[in-house]
Design a protein around this nucleic acid. Structure first.
Lengths: 344, 344
DNA sequence: ATGAAAGCGCTAACAC
DNA sequence: GTGTTAGCGCTTTCAT
């Protein structure tokens, strides 16, 4: 019981191999010149003992941390794991490691998580969205490492931003709806203060519709979990409450899919008199009875680019450190053809 | 330019507040008695300066790290975020923080991730599954903190395990299938060496069926992404390749849902002559045209309990540090009633 | 190619 | 209630 804790230290490896701590350190980090012989001895000793280096001490001494903080509202909404997959893909080729924190769409929790993560002095921060508390923005501005706000570019980034414009994505959907002659549009979203991206989509949609002389006829927001069931409920309610609706826009593919299933069961003319569209283009939904109109929000690419900014592979030439990705509108089979495409 | 890096230190706060570093440290950690006056001064100074403590130094000095390593195969398969949600729920009430790593179902990557995470000296490890490389097991056995293997109990845990028995879950489904008079069962899974839980479910199913005098007639495994489309394809193939199938077991609800949609479109007698079942009970799928038979794998509870073992709220009385959760079989509407329930 | 000494920013332990 | 001292396990720097 002479040891303060149960972990092995460099010193143990040093003693076991008969090589100085310093040289052991060099071997274990592949730094500096070490003779193959010494190298072998050290590696053997480390392996035998089961030595696991103490990154805490290493980080303190070297002032270098190979962690990248990634902060997202939720892991249960697939868009975030998908963005994360993009981040991992890129970081896997480096010695950087993502560390994920979830905020439950709560700005206060975001602030806390951010503080917590920054106190580990990560080499970069990737954070979803552009809306943060003042304190969070201050921390991000002063943390001294690259900060990439992802999945949205509608606003002023603290440092850099990568993602689509949800406002413009909504606007585009609105344009497509109008171009196809739909007049009475209902928006079905989930009630979630923290979901700024959904709000921006709706605002863009509204603008496009009003520019084309129509507007949003009704809007419903339900709280709780997004899923098929919620989509069904909302759809049934909407169709009952408002007469003559001819288009339903769901802020999310999952509720959209539920609505689609409901409308098909009701025998409604989906893709004809009644149009439907969701958002996000979840590939797991490929294979619905009818392909739902949607928009690919390019979250994986956003994650990749954010990671590349941190690794330095991606740079900016201008003052404006934003990369706006272009969302792809996918009409699927739930909207009638554009009027100009129609045969007369 | 006298400072080595751009971060503020305790010393800066100490100087700004005219209080010793030690007392500043006490205030910032709420430890020991500090007069309200001093306390206020320190907090004010820290806030003004925007001080973010350096946990690296703190952890090194105190030999305490408030991180819990959570290692999962993937974040894109919803079962893992759901388990994680259970972990977070419990840890949120403490000062512990989950740190998530994904392995892509690759034992070598798992080993690497584990090594990386252990080198940060976390206060506990939660890791999915009981199958690991020898080196991983050795690291887990020697890391000196609680190790909880979650979402499976079919095997020998290094330290503790929480989850359902996938073998028994499969066995139960098999029993239900047999009890309902289905005779020609096909299993549709995804080809994934690392998915031991799916394998165990199939083995349990097979046993139950063979005990009831039948067996698995055919088995298909497709690689790639689980989703509706995959379920459709596999289902179409299976029904074409093998004649007289009367039951399809999907190792996963998503492919199951795709299969369900396909079968309904084909006008097959789903829930009657043709039975279907998935696995996991994803609530986002509530609202399919017909409720798919499935099994709740209780991953959220597994996460909660694992976290409670680490916090010390959950303890064991016996030698066997395993908690076996009981999966709930949900017959849904895609299996005919048990023969004994049938009206004659 | 290898080693010795200093110190990273904080906290434990002890003094006052 | 507050301050002082030593040192956590590594890496940096400089010497050899």
């Amino acid at each position: 019981m002479t040891r303060r804790n149960q972990h092995l230290t460099l010193r143990d490896v040093s003693e076991a191999s008969g090589v100085s701590e310093m040289t052991v350190s060099r071997v274990l980090r592949n730094r500096g010149d070490v003779s193959p012989k010494t190298r072998e001895k050290v590696l053997e000793a480390a392996r035998m003992l089961g030595y696991v280096p103490n990154k805490i001490a290493g980080a303190l001494a070297s002032n270098r941390v190979n962690l990248v903080a990634v902060i997202v509202p939720s892991l249960s909404n697939l868009v975030f794991p998908e963005m994360l997959a993009g981040v991992s893909e890129v970081l896997d080729a480096t010695d950087l490691q993502p560390v994920v924190g979830a905020t439950n769409y709560d700005p206060a929790k975001e602030e806390k998580t951010l503080f917590e993560m920054l106190s580990w002095r990560p080499s970069g921060v990737i954070i979803a969205g552009l809306e943060h508390t003042d304190a969070s923005r201050a921390m991000l501005a002063n943390c001294g490492v690259p900060v990439i706000e992802v999945m949205d570019v509608d606003g002023d980034p603290v440092d850099a931003a990568v993602g689509i414009s949800h406002w413009r994505a909504g606007y585009q959907v609105g344009t497509e709806i109008a171009a196809r002659g739909y007049k009475r549009v209902c928006v079905l979203g989930t009630k979630m203060d923290g979901d700024h991206r959904a709000r921006k989509r709706i605002e863009g949609l509204e603008r496009a519709l009003s520019e084309s002389g129509t507007g949003i006829v009704d809007q419903m927001a339900y709280s709780g979990w997004s899923g098929f069931a919620k989509g069904r409920e909302m759809t049934a309610d909407a169709l009952k409450r408002v007469s003559d609706l001819d288009f339903l826009f769901y802020t999310n593919d999952l509720t959209g899919a539920g609505g689609l299933l409901y409308c098909l069961e009701q025998g409604l003319d989906v893709g004809g008199d009644l149009g439907l569209a969701g958002f996000n283009a979840f590939s797991l939904l490929d294979g619905l009875p009818r392909k739902l109109a949607t928009v690919d929000s390019r979250r994986r690419e956003a994650g990749q680019l954010a990671a590349r900014i941190i690794t330095g592979e991606q740079t900016f030439e201008t003052e404006d450190r934003r990369i706006e990705l272009v969302p792809t509108f996918l009409p699927g089979e739930t909207m009638r053809p554009r009027s100009t495409d129609q045969v007369t």
